Computed example of a mutant assay.
Amino acid sequence: MAKLAGPHLFNMLRGSLIGAAEAVPGISGGTVALITGVYEKLIGGAGHLTSAARMAAADLPRGKGGARAAAEARKVDWGVVLPLLVGMAVALVLAAKLIAPLVEEHPQYSYAVFFGLVLASLWVPYSSSGRPWRPIDYLIGLVVAAGGFLLTGLPPSQVPTHPLIVAAAGAVAICALVLPGVSGSFLLLTLGLYEPTIEAVNQRDFGYLSAFALGCLVGLALFVKLLKWLLEHHHHMTLVVMTGLMAGSLRALWPWQDDDRTLLAPSGAVGLTAVLAAVGALVVVVVLVVEIRAQRRRANPPAGRGRHARVPAAPEARTEYARDTSVR
């Protein structure tokens, strides 16, 4: 039981980091999912769930039952995905009360930590693309980074909290959640819906939250299948684009900027700000070291003795594992 609980608790911790990131404008939950090594598990699981929902919607009205949908849903690695979702949900609620106010009160120091975190995490998609980068890859990455830089420089606006607009914002925000380098919270802040959304979470405004959740479901269904296909068929180029997006998004986390997102020169406690950025980068290094060691343990579990000795995996199982981890 303890051996089973260990991985579940670790995955809940991973999910809590992703959920906490989504509450902070400028940092993407997808970035944290990449760092913690669960990004493709989440995308694959979301793809299977959207397929299952589509099958159920097609079969049940015709009286065919939900056998196809159930079979598709069983393809999700629930042992990983469910603890992740639980951790994300709990952390998102707590972060709305704890982390978001901290960022508002101490933006320079808070953004310094996140700037270091995202800067160090650029190594993850860069090194996981599956093959060495060519000059054209660097050029594409720079172009995408420039686009991300311009996007994160858009000044905040204000849109009405009409249910249709809230649903549309939810669809956009969920796409940002699954796309590293693009912050759903930052896009909500640009639309002027960040504070209303945080307030709805804190006040349990289920009308607002229902419209937002509906938009998230629609956006997820439309976007995640495309992203899953891109990762399966154009893995290298997809990670090149993700690296560029993450690099461009650093603009949103620059510790010195005004309310209109105009970048300013470093000033005021520059040393402390730099130290906090280094702390953020160190957190990424520690997480990556832990994840690499966990992958090695999974790939080479310790041999047992006697009747409990480890049985070598079947060739097809080894192939499946290689396919699952080759992109990390």
Rank of each mutant, 00 (worst) to 15 (best):
V182C: 05
S51Q: 12
T161I: 06
G29P: 00
K64Q: 15
L139D: 04
S157D: 12
G184P: 04
A70I: 15
V144C: 13
Y321V: 14
P266G: 03
R134A: 13
T152W: 09
A200F: 03
E320T: 10
A294F: 12
F212H: 01
V224M: 05
M88F: 13
V286H: 07
F223H: 00
L122V: 02
S127F: 03
R305D: 10
L84D: 09
E316P: 03
T238Y: 10
I140W: 11
T319A: 15
A146C: 07
E72P: 06
A120W: 06
G192E: 03
G215I: 00
V32N: 09
A309C: 09
D137E: 05
L220D: 01
G192P: 05
T238K: 11
L217P: 01
A265E: 09
I140R: 08
L209R: 02
G29C: 04
V290C: 14
W133F: 15
T325S: 11
V311C: 01
L187S: 01
Q257K: 13
V270E: 01
L164V: 05
D260W: 11
L49V: 08
S157K: 08
S210T: 15
L179K: 03
E22H: 04
D205Y: 04
L49M: 15
V80H: 08
A21P: 07
G30V: 01
H48L: 06
L222D: 02
L264T: 04
I198V: 15
V124L: 06
P301V: 09
Y109L: 14
A33I: 09
K75Q: 14
